[in-house]
Measured scan of single mutants.
Amino acid sequence: SLEEAIRRAEEALRKGQTFEYAGIRVTTQEALEKFRKWAEKQK
């Protein structure tokens, strides 16, 4: 689910890792916010 993907992205960010979902790379807090906004639109 998208909620699960967001949780995994947050977890990866805390560990300093890269999270990738549907071709979207989350490597920074800013990218995480963009990913969250994108995920909201997918619902």
Rank of each mutant, 00 (worst) to 15 (best):
S1W: 15
S1H: 13
S1Y: 14
S1R: 14
S1K: 12
L2T: 04
L2N: 02
L2P: 05
L2M: 10
L2A: 05
E3G: 08
E3Y: 08
E3N: 10
E3W: 11
E3A: 11
E3D: 15
E3V: 10
E3M: 11
E4P: 02
E4F: 05
E4K: 06
E4S: 09
E4R: 06
E4C: 05
E4G: 07
A5M: 14
A5N: 05
I6S: 02
I6D: 01
I6F: 07
I6Y: 06
I6L: 13
I6W: 05
I6M: 09
I6C: 04
I6G: 01
I6V: 14
I6T: 04
R7L: 13
R7V: 10
R7I: 12
R7E: 10
R8Q: 14
R8I: 08
R8H: 11
R8Y: 10
R8C: 06
R8S: 11
R8F: 10
R8W: 09
R8D: 13
R8G: 10
A9H: 00
A9W: 03
A9Y: 03
E10N: 04
E10L: 05
E10D: 06
E10V: 08
E10A: 07
E10Q: 07
E10I: 08
E11Q: 08
E11K: 05
E11V: 07
E11Y: 03
A12R: 03
A12N: 04
A12F: 07
A12L: 07
A12V: 04
L13I: 15
L13T: 03
L13G: 00
L13Y: 06
L13S: 01
R14P: 01
R14A: 15
R14C: 07
R14Y: 10
K15Y: 10
K15P: 01
K15W: 10
K15S: 12
K15A: 14
K15Q: 14
G16N: 08
G16H: 06
G16I: 01
G16Y: 03
G16A: 04
Q17M: 12
Q17D: 12
Q17F: 11
Q17C: 04
Q17A: 09
Q17V: 11
T18S: 12
T18Q: 11
T18W: 12
T18R: 07
T18A: 14
T18E: 14
F19S: 01
F19Y: 10
F19M: 03
F19G: 01
F19E: 02
F19Q: 01
F19R: 00
E20F: 08
E20D: 07
E20H: 06
Y21Q: 03
Y21K: 01
Y21I: 08
Y21T: 02
Y21F: 12
Y21N: 02
Y21W: 12
A22L: 12
A22F: 09
A22W: 07
A22K: 11
G23H: 05
G23R: 01
G23Q: 04
G23Y: 03
G23F: 04
G23T: 04
G23M: 03
G23D: 06
G23K: 02
I24D: 01
I24A: 02
I24V: 08
I24Y: 11
I24F: 15
I24N: 04
I24L: 09
R25Y: 13
R25H: 13
R25K: 14
R25V: 15
R25P: 08
R25W: 13
R25Q: 13
R25T: 14
R25N: 09
R25G: 05
V26D: 01
V26W: 05
V26P: 01
V26I: 15
V26S: 00
V26L: 09
V26Q: 01
V26F: 07
T27K: 07
T27L: 06
T27S: 14
T27I: 06
T27W: 07
T27Q: 11
T27P: 05
T27D: 15
T27Y: 07
T28N: 14
T28R: 02
T28W: 04
T28V: 03
T28D: 15
T28H: 06
T28G: 06
Q29D: 08
Q29A: 12
Q29T: 11
Q29W: 15
E30V: 08
E30A: 12
E30G: 07
E30L: 09
E30D: 12
E30F: 06
A31F: 05
A31K: 06
A31V: 06
L32I: 05
L32P: 00
L32A: 01
L32Y: 07
L32T: 00
L32V: 03
L32H: 01
E33H: 07
E33K: 07
E33F: 05
E33Y: 05
E33G: 05
E33A: 10
E33S: 07
E33D: 12
K34R: 13
K34F: 14
K34A: 15
K34D: 13
F35N: 00
F35P: 00
F35H: 01
F35R: 00
F35V: 02
F35W: 06
F35G: 00
F35D: 00
R36D: 01
R36P: 00
R36L: 15
R36N: 03
R36Q: 08
R36I: 15
K37C: 05
K37H: 11
K37P: 01
K37R: 11
K37I: 13
W38H: 02
W38R: 01
W38Y: 05
W38T: 02
W38L: 04
W38Q: 03
W38C: 03
W38K: 01
W38M: 03
W38F: 04
A39K: 02
A39R: 02
A39D: 01
E40F: 06
E40P: 01
E40R: 06
E40T: 06
E40K: 07
E40S: 07
K41F: 12
K41L: 15
K41N: 14
K41S: 15
K41P: 03
Q42C: 08
Q42L: 12
Q42N: 10
Q42S: 07
Q42H: 11
Q42T: 09
Q42I: 13
Q42M: 13
Q42D: 06
Q42F: 11
Q42E: 10
K43I: 15
K43H: 11
K43N: 13
K43V: 14
